[in-house]
């Protein structure tokens, strides 16, 4: 089985891109499964079901979504193997713009959109910088110049990646993406022993444990303060 992890900020069109790409994968008679990771709510699973794709969803609720992802990806992989998928796609939103739920030797796709502003590629951490394939969406509504500038910014923070433009509405570019996703020689049987491409942000303070009160005396553990310069009294 092939495993592909797809991530990107909320509302960039990850689900649309994946759905369009699955159409091309299915034409090649490949059996595709999807697992959708989200925080509080998603009904994207219904979209996948409607498209005839087997899907699982995982909501992280009060936990960090990326920590939740990495704690569950092995189980999900086994689910994919049990169902004899040729390719399993995991979809997750990167919420803090730093996290990177990518795993070494597992194909990593990052989806971002042209509308997010040209400063964005610089702001997103490993999710963009260490992706193998970067998909840029919503190219149909911005100018050619903006597309070129945006792609060159992405290129300057991740020169090794293949950058593709995909239109989630019309599917333009999704066939091309599908050719990059599946490799018949690749066969994942477990993720045990594999490592993340980059460590996730550390957090263990009183608020992680349910504290709601504000003020220094309630803050314990891994706490850091904003630097506001020297205060004049």
């Amino acid at each position: 089985m092939n495993l592909v992890t797809v991530s990107g900020p909320p509302s960039v069109g990850k689900t649309s891109v994946i759905l369009k790409t699955i159409v091309s994968l299915k034409e090649r008679k490949l059996k595709v499964g999807v697992v959708k990771f989200d925080c509080l709510f998603t009904d994207d699973d219904i979209l996948y079901e409607k498209a005839g794709v087997m899907v699982q969803k995982g909501l992280s609720g009060g936990l960090c979504p990326d920590h939740y992802f990495v704690s569950n990806i092995e189980e999900v992989t086994q689910w994919g193997l049990d169902n004899k998928f040729d390719i399993l796609i995991s979809e997750s939103a990167g919420l803090c713009n730093r996290c990177s739920p990518y795993i070494k030797d597992i194909k990593a796709v990052c989806v971002i959109d042209n509308l997010s502003g040209i400063g964005t590629p610089k702001k997103i951490g490993p999710m963009l910088k260490s992706a193998d394939i970067v998909i840029i969406t919503k190219g149909d509504i911005v100018s050619q110049a903006e597309r070129e500038v945006f792609a060159s910014r992405v290129h300057s923070v991740n020169p090794g990646a293949t950058i593709l433009h995909v239109n989630g509405l019309t599917g333009q570019g999704s066939f091309e993406l599908s050719t990059l996703l599946y490799d018949k020689d690749e066969d994942i049987t477990t993720l045990k022993g594999k490592t993340l491409r980059f460590s996730m942000p550390a957090a263990l303070c009183s608020y992680c444990l349910g504290e709601t009160r504000i003020g220094e005396s309630y803050q314990m553990g891994n706490v850091r303060k904003i630097d506001l310069g020297k205060r004049e009294i």
């Binding site: 042209n114 509308l115 502003g117 040209i118 190219g139 149909d140 509504i141 911005v142 100018s143 050619q144 903006e146 792609a151 060159s152 992405v154 290129h155 293949t162 950058i163 091309e176």
Partner: peptide, 21 residues
């Protein structure tokens, strides 16, 4: 022509395109 980000064969101009910057 397939994989380079700076060299694309086709540039597009269409009705729905807007400047957003």
């Amino acid at each position: 022509w397939r994989y380079s980000s700076s060299e694309k064969l086709v540039a597009q101009l269409s009705q729905n395109m807007n400047f957003v910057m």
